[in-house]
């Protein structure tokens, strides 16, 4: 598989304060590559160094075989970017933004079909300030796709969107990949990475602390499953400790949490049936990337 991005030992400090300590990764052509980490981890700085917006203090970066520092203009024509916290003038209309940005590139695709595709056709005469959060994001994606880029960088695209708009954006990101483009996706939503990314780099304090497919990362936890439910008063949960696969049982009043491996839900349900207990609010909780982060750092990703 062809590598489109190669980052080696990237280091970047602002006025002596390290933002990116030592980051290395490769991105393969056609994949959705996730970068995840808590606030201030150095994600944005990393990506801004990759696209040539910042000058790294150390390490090397190569994108599409180009050096972002010396061949910025060439590279700029072949990548699309959605930067974090980068708006448009309030009173600029949708079509004006597309028309204006199209003039910045050597080659562009016509913007009218883009507007159709991203559901902005009715909003073409609306000013930027009058768009909803989701519409703004779709405009940003359209702008990032104007030059038919080979790689698209999306920094915190869904931050601030309601859950429904976030899901809708996920479909859009999948659609970009289906056009054969590579996507680099920065986020601090674990579910977003799990849903979209082929591979993910977990960044913390300016370092890559894990890099793999989301499934492998979760599997590496030897992840236990948890079964949660409520029972009538008087039920003693210790009785379930002997059920096959169970490693721990926690009871808090009527609320019971059972951890274990294997077909845990089936085994626990069978045991409860034997005792003639009908559990309420039964649900299963699988290990996810949140747990991976917790295991790696001892902290949750939000603080």
């Amino acid at each position: 598989m062809t590598q489109v991005i190669e980052v080696r030992n990237l280091h970047k400090a602002y006025d002596g304060v390290t933002a990116v300590d030592d980051v290395s990764f490769n991105v393969d052509e056609g994949e959705i590559f996730g970068i995840i980490g808590p606030n201030g981890a150095g994600k944005t700085t990393t990506i801004e160094s990759v696209i040539g917006l910042r000058k790294p203090d150390g390490g090397s970066v190569s994108v599409l075989g180009l050096d972002p520092q010396t061949e910025a203009r060439k590279l700029g024509n072949r990548i699309g970017t959605q930067l974090q916290e980068a708006a448009l003038p309030e009173r600029m209309k949708v079509w004006e933004a597309l028309d204006l940005y199209a003039s910045f590139y050597e080659k562009t695709v016509p913007w009218e079909p883009l507007v159709e595709q991203w559901g902005l056709a009715e909003k073409r005469n609306t000013q930027f300030g009058g768009l909803s959060g989701g519409q703004k994001q779709r405009l940003f994606i359209s702008l990032a796709l104007l030059n038919d880029p080979q790689i698209v960088f999306l920094d915190e695209l869904t931050t601030g969107l309601d859950p429904q708009a976030r899901r809708a954006t996920w479909d859009l990101i999948r659609a970009i990949r289906e056009q054969g483009k590579t996507v680099v996706l920065i986020t601090h939503f674990m579910d977003e990475v799990e849903a979209l990314a082929d591979r993910v780099a977990v960044i913390d304090h300016g370092r890559v602390i894990a890099l793999d497919t989301p499934d492998n990362l979760i599997a590496s936890l030897n992840g236990e499953t948890q079964v949660l439910f409520s029972v009538p008063n008087g039920f003693e949960a210790e009785r379930l400790e002997k059920v096959s696969g169970v490693t721990a049982v926690h009871q808090h009043n009527q609320h019971i949490t059972i951890s274990g491996n294997g077909p845990l839900l089936a085994n626990v349900a069978a045991a409860l049936a034997q005792h003639n207990i009908a559990p309420a609010d039964l649900r299963v909780q699988q290990a996810n990337l949140e747990d991976v982060f917790l295991a790696l750092t001892g902290r949750t990703i939000r603080n």
């Binding site: 696209i51 203009r73 980068a86 448009l88 910045f104 590139y105």
Partner: peptide
Amino acid sequence: NYRELGILRRLRATPLG
């Protein structure tokens, strides 16, 4: 205002110069 809202930042990320 353009700087504060990242409007200049967005322009910088294009090959415009």
